[in-house]
Simulated assay, not measured.
Amino acid sequence: MSQSSTPPPVPPAEQSGNPYAQGAGPQDTPPAPGFPQQQGGPAFPMAPVAPTGPVSTNIGLGLAAAVGAALVGAVVYGVVIGLTKHQIGWAAVGVGFLIGLAAGRVGGRNPVLPVVSVVLAAGSVYLGQLVGEAMIGAKEIGVGFNELFFDHLDLVQEAWKADADPLTFVFFAIAAYVAFSSARKAGH
């Protein structure tokens, strides 16, 4: 029996230099610069968060998108009123949401856009109510919608005033609130 003078075997983890291999711990390897070291386990580097780029704010496009959405919303809201002969709350919410979303997504974070969205939402609901009133009136008196709405808008507004109640104005407020909040959220 002869004795050898070789050193004891080194575990494979220490041979490879892998700090995450078994047998190596956070105390065995210094952290890389810029990467914090976790306590009580292997060190997992945390990637630094890149700063976000500049936020685009294009007020012109945001306003154009909001105006387009207001016109589309007014027509849809008016058709809903004309077909059901009732104002429906979710339709006013939809008008406000559509306007705010269009303004915020296209225009960005500009602080003017939520305020303009409020005004456009109230105007869109009003125009939608006039469209609905004209649809109902055109059926009742047997004339075409275009003739009543475009040639006799004063009669449509008089009918709207006669039919307006407190709930009518609640729909203005609902659409305005939803437009403001959705424009702010969509822009961020």
Rank of each mutant, 00 (worst) to 15 (best):
G17F: 04
G17A: 06
N18M: 06
Y20N: 14
Y20K: 14
A21T: 11
A21C: 11
G23K: 12
G23H: 08
G23L: 13
A24Q: 15
G25N: 14
P26E: 12
Q27I: 07
D28G: 08
D28Q: 14
T29H: 14
T29C: 04
P31F: 08
P31C: 09
P31R: 12
A32S: 13
A32C: 00
A32H: 02
P33T: 11
G34T: 10
G34L: 07
F35M: 05
P36R: 10
Q37Y: 01
Q37E: 06
Q38D: 10
G40R: 04
G40D: 08
G40N: 08
P42D: 10
P42G: 12
A43E: 01
F44P: 03
P45S: 04
M46S: 12
M46D: 03
A47R: 07
A47V: 04
A47D: 02
P48L: 13
P51H: 05
P51R: 12
T52S: 14
G53K: 13
G53D: 10
G53V: 08
V55W: 02
V55C: 00
V55G: 00
S56G: 08
S56K: 13
S56T: 13
N58T: 05
I59C: 06
G60W: 14
G60M: 09
G60R: 04
G62N: 05
G62R: 03
L63Q: 02
L63A: 12
L63K: 01
A64E: 04
A64L: 15
A65T: 04
A65I: 02
A66R: 09
V67H: 00
A69D: 02
A70E: 02
A70P: 05
L71D: 03
L71T: 07
V72M: 12
G73I: 02
G73H: 03
G73W: 00
G73A: 07
V75G: 14
V76S: 10
V76F: 12
V76E: 00
Y77W: 15
G78D: 01
V79I: 14
V79K: 10
V80A: 15
I81C: 13
